[in-house]
Design a protein around this nucleic acid. Structure first.
Length: 104
DNA sequence: CTTTTGACTGAGT
DNA sequence: AACTCAGCCAAAA
């Protein structure tokens, strides 16, 4: 019985909840961590998030250290705001500072 | 049933 | 640095 994509929702959300404060994760790393190989599927799963206050989906960023354009809960600005609250800082190009150190 | 659409990535130009 | 393009594959149209 092959797994469906929806079966990966809980593993991903668990992973996000378990991320230490101040840590972020890229789509590709997140995908590999839960056994997926297509990062686009992470985006699909995050869209299923009904509790953005419980599930820190704002911690998922692009592999180049910037933010995805389609963040569902208020756009890039809102996501950046939440990340700053975690102690993450951005340069003038919207790229995360110390990206390598923040990465999970 | 077929086509299009993504919260993407990595390689190539 | 900016821009394509193919690969990826479940969902939605």
């Amino acid at each position: 019985m092959p797994k469906k994509l929806s079966d990966y929702i809980n593993p991903l959300f668990s992973l996000l909840i378990s991320l230490p404060k101040g840590k972020i994760i890229s789509y590709s790393i997140a995908a590999k961590s839960i056994g997926l190989d297509n990062p686009r599927n992470i985006g699909w799963i995050l869209k299923q998030n009904k509790n953005p206050d419980t599930i820190p989906c704002f911690k998922v960023v692009l592999s180049n250290g910037k933010l995805a354009k389609g963040y569902k809960f208020g756009g890039q600005k809102e996501q950046q705001k939440r990340l700053k609250r975690e102690g993450i800082f951005f340069d003038e190009n919207g790229r995360i500072l110390n990206f390598e150190q923040c990465k999970y």
